[in-house]
Computed example of a mutant assay.
Amino acid sequence: MSAHAFVDESARNRQFLLCVTLVEPAHLRPTRRALTELLLRGARELHFKKEKEPRRRQLIDQMAKMSVSVRMYTGSCSPKTEEAVRQQCLRQMAEDLLAVGAHRLVLDTRNERDAHDHRTLWQTLGSRPSKTELTYEHLDSTLEPILWISDAVAWCFGAGGGWAQRVAGLIDAHIKL
């Protein structure tokens, strides 16, 4: 699979969620266009936490029609261990992306905390730079619409109940660490 991966996270109820949306190169442009068309007038991004409930349902229904697949990485955490659990999830995700031949990884920026991700990814990918074509970068979610899918799915999964059921069809794999 020659895919691009887009990552966002959520932490809820002592659980860390790292959500990865995979998109094949041929579907990048139509997926971005479809997501941008979902923006309300004057909005620069979709941020699921800020949306009202009826709009959340509408957004998830539209995202479910897109040519994407989603993987969820989860681990138990406390506020003190959240960063360590994120890095554990990120390490496993990077290994999995290498296994499927992914080429590009985009992570929603956390500004100064991006350094933790750089260190983990360098440790995971750095020993084989000539053997893998996986590149990565951190971007603000206003610059990459596909990050909005990961944000929405992570929010729904973390909310549980009907919201988790609503996104179950989008999630191809749930990896518990």
Rank of each mutant, 00 (worst) to 15 (best):
H4E: 12
V7R: 00
D8W: 08
D8N: 08
E9A: 03
S10G: 07
S10L: 06
A11N: 13
N13Y: 12
Q15N: 14
F16P: 00
L17N: 12
L17G: 06
L17P: 05
C19N: 07
C19W: 10
C19D: 03
T21W: 05
T21A: 07
L22Q: 04
V23W: 07
V23H: 07
V23M: 01
E24F: 02
E24H: 09
P25G: 05
A26R: 14
A26I: 03
R32S: 05
R32E: 12
A34V: 07
L35S: 04
T36L: 13
E37D: 14
E37A: 15
L39H: 08
L39Q: 11
L39I: 08
L40Y: 09
L40A: 15
R44M: 06
E45A: 14
E45R: 13
K49P: 03
K50V: 11
E51T: 01
E53I: 13
P54G: 08
R56Q: 10
Q58F: 12
I60Y: 04
I60C: 02
Q62N: 10
Q62R: 15
M63P: 01
M63T: 02
K65L: 15
S67I: 03
S67V: 05
S67N: 15
V68E: 00
V70T: 06
R71H: 11
T74K: 11
G75C: 07
G75I: 07
C77H: 09
S78T: 15
P79M: 08
K80I: 09
K80N: 14
K80Q: 15
E82S: 11
E83I: 14
A84I: 09
R86V: 01
R86H: 08
Q87V: 02
Q88T: 14
L90W: 03
L90I: 03
R91Y: 09
Q92M: 02
M93F: 06
E95Q: 15
G101K: 02
A102M: 01
L105D: 04
L105H: 06
V106C: 09
L107M: 14
L107H: 02
D108I: 00
R110N: 05
N111Y: 12
N111M: 09
R113Q: 12
D114W: 00
A115Q: 10
H116I: 06
D117W: 01
R119M: 03
T124S: 04
R128W: 04
S130N: 14
T132S: 15
L134K: 09
L134N: 06
T135A: 13
Y136S: 10
H138Y: 04
S141N: 09
T142K: 15
T142N: 14
T142A: 14
P145K: 01
I146F: 00
L147Y: 06
A152C: 10
A152R: 04
A154S: 08
A154D: 04
W155H: 05
W155G: 04
C156Q: 05
G158V: 03
G158F: 10
G158A: 15
A159S: 11
A159L: 13
G160L: 07
G161I: 03
G162E: 12
A164G: 10
A164M: 07
Q165Y: 05
Q165H: 12
Q165S: 15
V167E: 00
A173I: 05
H174K: 10
H174D: 04
I175Y: 11
I175W: 06
